[in-house]
Every structure is written in C-alpha cells, then in structure tokens.
Design a protein around this nucleic acid. Structure first.
Lengths: 225, 225
DNA sequence: GCCATTTTTAAGGATTTTATAAGGAAACGA
DNA sequence: TCGTTTCCTTATAAAATCCTTAAAAATGGC
C-alpha cells in the first residue's frame, strides 16, 4: 500500500520540488499552502507530515501544536531556521525530525523513508542462521529479500534445526520435537520434509542442513558471517 | 524505567561529552570504544544506539550492518562525514538518524529524546494499515472515503490483527483476544468472520489478511522498503 | 569392486485444514 | 412483540499438506 504524505508549505516552488522528489519513492503526496486550513481530522489520513516552519499566517510550530495530540504519524519540520533554540522547540512540540534548509533532495528522501520504515518496524523475535532468517512470531523464514515458501511442518523442522545448530537429531527425534509425539512411520516422512526444505533453499544456493550418515540431520554450525 | 543507551565511539573525549549531555535527561549510558567488540545480542538490551561512523578497525556502517537485523531499537549515526552519499548509505543500512558533527549538545539531546519518545508512542486514536483506517475510539474502519460495514465482532478481529501486523494468531487466540475468553466451537466462528471481513474488503480490492496454513491468520506486514 | 544399509527422490493417495454457503439461535432496537 | 442484525453452527466443497510406498542413488565396510 502506498504511503500517503501531506506537505504544508507556502512556497509553491518548494512544494512541487518536494512532491517530485518523494513521488520517486512511490509515495502519494498531498500538498497544502495554507496551514490555517489544515484540519486535524484530515491529518489522520496520512502516514507522515512535512511542515514548513516559517509561513505567513499560521506557522508550522503552531500547526504542529494544534494537531499533534490527534495524530500518531511522524511529523517532520522543513526549515531555514537553523538556531538550536528553534530546533529544540520543534522537537519539544512532538516533532520527529527537523530538516534544515538548504537540504538535498537525497537527504529528504532518505529521512522520510527512514521514518516511514520505522512505523512498520516492530519488535520481532528473529533468528539469523546460515543466511536464513526466521521470524518466529510470523512463522516465516526468509533468505535475502524473499520469503521461503515453507509449509508449517517444513518451517518447524527447519527452525528446530537452526535453533540447535550443530546438534544432530535422528528423524524420530525431529518428528517428536516438531509434532509433539512419536508416530509410526515418521522417519520417512521427515526425510520427505528435509528433501523439500533443501529444494526450497537451493533456489538461494544455500544448503545448511547436513546429513550425518547413520544418525540423522544437523544444521551446519557457524558459517562465519 | 530509565532508558538505556549505548554509545560507540573511538574518541574518548567525545564519549564523555555525549555521556554527560545525555545523562542530564536521566538516561543510563554505556560506552564502547571498539566497534568490533560489540555483540548483537548485547545490543538488544538497549533502547537506542549511537554510533560514530569513522572509527579505526570496524566502522559504524559495518557495525550497523552486523546488528540491524537483530536489533529493533533506533540507531543514530554521529559523523563528520557530511556528504549526501554517506548519509543516504547510513539510512540505507536501517539507521534512524544521521547527526552531522559538529552538532550542539542541545540538538543531540533533542534528537535522542525524540527517538525514544517515538518508541513508546503508540496508536491511540487512529491506525492506518494496509489501506484500512481504524478509528479506535469510534470502533469504525474505513477504506478510502467510505466506511466499511463491519459488525462489532468483525471490527474487533480486524483491528486486533492490524494492531499486531505480522504476528500470526490461531483462531482460538483470536477469539480469546477479542471476546475475552475461550469458547467451544470458536474456531469455525472465527473462520466465518474472517470470510466476511475479506468479502467486505474485497470491494476496495484490498486483502491484507493472510492465512498461515495450519496455524492461523495474520495481517500482512507493510514493507516500505 | 561388491554388498548391505541408509539416504534421496518421486509420485500418489490419505488426511487435515480452510473456504464457502446456508440456516437457525440469540441479542438488540423499535 | 416483531423484525432486524449479528453471531454461531453445520454441511459441503476446495485446497494444501502430510504420509506412504517404492525405486534410485549414495555411503561405508569388507
């Protein structure tokens, strides 16, 4: 989903400049030239606000003061006011960043994206082993940038091996650890899962699961990284 | 609870300067002069990390790269490198701020406090996720300009999933989270609600609820790069 | 090199889980 | 009370996973 941003600045040239820069990152930009017409309720629609500080009529600080209580999204100030006092005041009003003019558009984009990214960052219980990243909350494993299409059983076996990297498990132990109890023909079922796991990891040219002949399987320990 | 911060810088004078400034705000400061000795696991103890970029041995960028995947807290760079390219690179590594030296201690404090404040700020009135807007006070959800005709139960399940985007919930967990306790045939009831929710979201061509086969449901986590 | 054992691979059916649809009970407001 | 809405149950269809079976390949000991 495209993030929606609102930019408030009385300088129309600046507005179109900022709009052009941020649209490159695929954001949807609304602009407003007059702070006084900005409604707090409308601000709730946005994922991020960019406010110029010095504007005729209502200034950015005043606008921020009006809306901050009802808006949870990041608020960034764009300003030529370089004094420390103004900066501290801006942050004191609940702002999240304070970008001094003149700024490069590259910096603007980097900062905006950083704030948007943070909005979706959440405490995660993740495990990184051998190039595979396990999100134990989402029950999802990924390699590099893409998600590995593990089934539930495959994921569980994989996670269990990775969690106890270096330790060898027999097929029976694996089955019991993952599915809770001992079944009959479990060993061949586990072998099947291992096969599928390896096939899915092969796409990324990684094969962290080693076979210990006559015993079982283990996750290769610390490939340096 | 006092926020705990870690500052990594090879310049001992800078370390003590920064420490003194941040302790004024009541933060607890740990310092480290050698990036190479910083363990990712230890970083999880902190609420915020301040990294110098240019250090002998391992530099700040390298350190950030090592730990970002396992650390959820804000990471701020302190640097004399003023070029745009370095700044963009820093943010690209998942950093949250990039403070150029020389900086005033007032600015440092303001920025650090802004980041810490944001960590504890959470959606109170409205929540914007995946194109759906939740008014958590009115218990109303909307997409675009029109209101979604959710029933109370549907809204609650939907909001709970959106609030904990990325986390998988079993049907039983969802039922308990929403209706307060465990019922008998809850699982099929939840499935029915999910169906209705998806049908109502389909009008707007959005389907943020994914089923994790054999586990439950989750709200798709936005990835804003 | 040969054999017994173990692992890997492949394919198919059995099982489990989810999606969908329809109907009835319960709660709610008029 | 009536009618509406919401919620839950049940039944069936559809989908995905899991397990079994059997054959091919690999391994280790002799």
């Amino acid at each position: 989903m495209m993030p929606k941003l609102l930019v408030v600045d009385d300088d129309l040239d600046m507005l179109s400049l900022v709009r052009a820069a941020l649209e490159k990152d695929g954001h949807q930009i609304d602009t407003e030239a007059d702070a006084a017409t900005v409604q707090p309720a409308r601000c709730q629609l946005y994922d991020l606000l960019l406010l110029d500080v010095m504007m005729p009529g209502e200034d950015g600080f005043s606008l921020c003061r009006r809306i901050r209580a009802e808006v949870d999204c990041p608020i960034l100030f764009l300003t030529a006011k370089a004094e420390d006092a103004a900066l501290v005041q801006g942050f004191g009003l609940g702002a999240d960043d304070y970008i001094k003019k003149p700024f490069s558009l590259a910096e603007l984009r980097a900062r905006v994206n950083a704030h948007l990214r943070r909005e979706v960052r959440q405490p995660t219980h993740t495990l990184n082993r051998g190039g595979v990243r396990f999100d134990m909350q989402a029950k999802v494993a990924s390699a590099g940038e893409h998600t590995l299409p593990f089934t539930k059983g495959e994921y569980s076996i994989c996670e269990h091996l990775a969690l106890h990297a270096g330790q060898v498990f027999t097929k029976e132990q694996l089955y019991e650890a993952v599915f809770g109890f001992d079944a009959e023909g479990d060993s061949s079922a586990v072998a099947e899962h291992i096969k599928n796991i390896r096939a899915k990891l092969k796409v990324d040219a990684i094969s962290p699961i080693e076979t210990v002949w006559g015993v079982g399987y283990k996750w290769r320990k610390n490939s340096v990284l």
